[in-house]
Amino acid sequence: MSRLVIVLCLALLAAGCGFKPRASLAVATSLGPVAVSTADPYSPLGQDLATALERAGATAAVEGQPAATLQVLTENLRTRPLTFESGASVREYQSIYRVEFQLRGADGSLRLPRQSVELTREYTYDAIGSIGTPAEERLLRDELRRDMVAAILRRLDAALRTD
Rank of each mutant, 00 (worst) to 15 (best):
E122D: 14
E137A: 02
R104Q: 08
S95N: 10
A106R: 14
P134R: 00
E85T: 14
T124G: 08
G108M: 07
Q115N: 06
L110P: 08
Y123W: 03
L139K: 02
S109P: 02
R121T: 08
G105R: 00
R138G: 03
G105M: 06
G108I: 03
T124L: 02
G132C: 04
L140C: 03
V90Y: 03
R141T: 05
T79I: 09
T133K: 12
E100W: 01
T79R: 07
G105A: 13
L82D: 10
L82A: 07
G132D: 00
E137P: 04
P81Q: 07
R138P: 15
L140Y: 04
F84H: 14
Q115W: 00
D107H: 09
S86R: 04
R98F: 05
R121M: 06
G132L: 02
L110A: 12
A135Q: 11
A135T: 01
T79G: 10
S130N: 06
Q102P: 10
E118M: 10
I128A: 15
R104F: 06
I131P: 09
L110K: 13
I131F: 13
E136F: 02
E92S: 05
E122A: 02
V99E: 14
S116M: 01
P81G: 12
L82Y: 01
I128F: 15
I96R: 06
G132W: 01
P113V: 07
S116D: 12
Y125C: 07
R80W: 13
F101L: 02
L103M: 11
G105E: 05
S89G: 10
Q102S: 13
V90T: 00
F84E: 03
T83F: 14
E122R: 09
P134D: 01
R80M: 10
L119A: 11
Q115S: 11
S130K: 09
A88R: 14
R80E: 15
E136T: 00
E137K: 00
I96W: 09
Q102F: 12
L112I: 10
T120I: 06
T83W: 09
T120L: 05
V117D: 00
S130M: 07
L103A: 00
E122I: 04
R80T: 14
G108V: 01
I128Q: 15
R121D: 09
Q102G: 06
D107V: 01
R111G: 03
R80C: 11
G108D: 09
Q102L: 13
R141E: 06
G87A: 15
Q94C: 10
I96Y: 04
E118I: 05
L139I: 08
R141F: 07
E137M: 06
T83S: 15
Y125T: 09
I131C: 02
E100N: 02
R80D: 15
G87V: 11
S89F: 07
R111F: 12
Q115P: 03
